[in-house]
Write a protein that binds this DNA or RNA. Structure first.
Lengths: 171, 171
DNA sequence: CCTCCTGATTGCGAAATCCGCAGCCTCTGG
DNA sequence: CCAGAGGCTGCGGATTTCGCAATCAGGAGG
């Protein structure tokens, strides 16, 4: 995951803007700009402009708008394992009642980095990042299962991260 | 997902560097720098330096090293849904035989954005991003299940992305 | 205790980039 | 035909990035 929507801040997918379809339709140029930034988030506007055929100022304005609209975000991404978080897991959640309210509750937990509503045997899939086994246990058994509406959960502890990209555009 | 390891490029988690523990130990200053860049990947080095108590040049060198080492990457992250990819899904995979080789095969597919080996009822969890239902069906039924060693799969189609952050450090 | 090395940090100018703004153009709607 | 809005371009001035040489700190040896 994690290539998913842009969390406006530390919070949730604020409005439900365009989770529906694609909301603001992006033209080919904006797509090209995004591709450039997917390769290098710090690439200078002038270089991007040259690549997509636009002036430096125009690129700057477009990027700012994409950022403001929440269509994209430029951030540093790391491997939690190299930064002190020893345990990560994907947790499948079975919900009874309103799924969205449960999702909101999980979204509020800082340990949950990724929350998505799904179709299938799980109603929600959540990625949690913890410092150690105790922490992971605490989050799953005490916090997540304590949320009203959570019927049961199933965990998949990460053994090894094999791939993580943000370059869909380039294919 | 997706806050996971840093794909060196378009490829996979190259070496298995430190999937083990945390490899190169990061000191508090580097952590602080990463936190700054998790908030804004384009923040100027001088501003970061002021925040972490280091000169502009020192920050620049540290960032460059973190990038070179593959500890972090600075990129644009979007919500695939707003960029034309209509279908996303998490796929749980049951493997017989060598899990790693299957993981490598999946990693090679451009539609698989995220591949992780897990403990639990699934041996692998894969996030796939497709343009439409046909494409998704093709990827899951023809491509993934065709990989030698894949015994069976279970899909969880994304209905709505609720949260996605990269700010674990700030808590 | 002194010296040699290595690695990280700092302090600069010079070059490149970012930023705000005014002017243009195009498209839409009175 | 005339606003008005939106998007682009050009252009200085302020900032930031870059490359480098000098400085510092921390061992390893002698």
């Amino acid at each position: 995951m994690h290539s998913g929507a842009v969390a406006s801040r530390s919070a949730d997918q604020k409005d439900s803007r365009e989770s529906r379809n694609g909301g603001t339709q992006l033209d080919a140029v904006s797509l090209a700009i995004i591709e450039q930034l997917q390769e290098d988030g710090r690439r200078p506007y002038a270089a991007i402009g040259k690549a997509v055929g636009l002036s430096e100022a125009a690129v700057r304005q477009r990027v700012q708008k994409l950022l403001d609209q929440g269509v994209m975000q430029i951030v540093a991404v790391t491997d939690p394992l190299t930064v002190g978080f020893r345990r990560q897991a994907m947790v499948g959640v079975h919900v009874e009642g309103d799924v969205e309210s449960v999702a909101d509750a999980l979204t509020a937990m800082s340990e949950c980095e990724y929350v998505v509503m799904t179709a299938g045997s799980f109603d929600l899939m959540v990625e949690v990042v913890c410092e150690d086994d105790d922490h992971l246990l605490e989050v799953i058994n005490r916090r997540i299962r304590a949320v009203p509406g959570v019927r049961s959960t199933e965990s998949f502890v990460y053994l090894k991260l094999k791939k993580q990209t943000y370059m869909w555009g380039t294919r």
